[in-house]
Design a protein around this nucleic acid. Structure first.
Length: 270
DNA sequence: GACCCCAGACGTCAGTGGAG
DNA sequence: CTCCACTGACGTCTGGGGTC
């Protein structure tokens, strides 16, 4: 849903495979919605937080392509079998889950800014009064997902660290609220002991200052990437679940249609 | 309250694939 | 070939719920 959407607004998406999704958000109070849908155009009505999300799905190409050649279907199957990254999958689908719960429903999810790459880094000095963090560096990852990390704000994700005069790194601890700082000596970020252990594992002598700084930066970036990856994976799963719901609904409609036609045929026959 | 279990989130490592 | 982003796997932490 685009950001400025007020009550009674609608978004129209065009996903692949000819699936058009219309999202309508209406305040929960006293609504009477009678979506006009054709027989072969099932609707999904779900409530999301304070809004009713009415999803009208038109599965056009899926039905209309039945008569087309098999090569396209093969192509599609191949693409599915190859299992590309979540980013690619979701970019292709361009239909991020709109039925998200509270955490995501208020975010901008028009399929564009949800999946932009966190590809630019900006280092800025950050004044901080904490003695251990004089010269605190702020690693700002612009274009990062708005829904990622607890310490992300808007479209930027801020990761903070500082390096003391002894070459040691100081990393904020405590999630959203930067409350305490722990010493993270170069090389101390070994698996499993990351933030909880203050004791270095390998001696700093073996690692040049430049090398350790590079390592810390790499870890910071990888940390953020992992967070982003998990978020995308969740969104991907939600997207799949939504599609399952839509297809189940369509299946139900088709079965009912078949049933009605059968009855009609039997009546005519009798 | 103490303990256990479980789900979810996190950070890190290692492997992979694409871009230059 | 190197660099980097992405992602699966692993271990850890944390909060909630259930039981005693």
């Amino acid at each position: 849903m685009s950001e400025g959407n007020g009550p009674g607004t609608a978004d129209i998406e065009n996903g692949n495979q000819g699936i058009s999704v219309v999202h309508v958000s209406i305040p929960n109070q006293a609504i009477q919605v009678q979506p006009v849908i054709q027989a072969n155009q099932p609707s999904v009505i779900q409530s999301a937080g304070n809004f009713q999300t009415i999803q009208v799905v038109r599965v056009a190409a899926v039905d209309e392509d039945l008569s087309s050649d098999d090569s396209e279907a093969k192509k599609r199957r191949e693409i599915l079998a190859r299992r590309p990254s979540y980013r690619k999958i979701l970019n292709d689908l361009s239909s991020p889950s709109k039925m998200d719960d509270d955490s995501n429903s208020s975010q901008s999810q028009d399929g564009q800014d949800s999946f932009v790459q966190a590809n630019t880094l900006q280092l800025t000095a950050h004044g901080d009064a904490t003695p251990a963090t004089q010269g605190l560096q702020t690693l700002t990852m612009t274009n990062a997902s708005p829904t990622s990390a607890s310490n992300s704000t808007g479209s930027t994700t801020i990761v903070q660290y500082a390096q003391g005069p002894d070459g040691q790194f100081y990393i904020p601890v405590g999630g959203t609220n930067v409350q305490a700082y722990q010493i993270a000596a170069p090389g101390s970020l070994a698996q499993g002991v990351v933030m909880t252990s203050g004791s270095p594992i390998s001696s700093p002598q073996h690692m040049s200052e430049e090398g350790s700084r590079k390592r810390e930066l790499r870890l910071l970036k990888n940390r953020e990437a992992a967070r982003e990856c998990r978020r995308k994976k969740k969104e991907y799963v939600k997207c799949l679940e939504n599609r399952v719901a839509v297809l189940e609904n369509q299946n139900k409609t088709l079965i009912e249609e078949l049933k009605a036609l059968k009855e009609l045929y039997c009546q005519k026959d009798a």
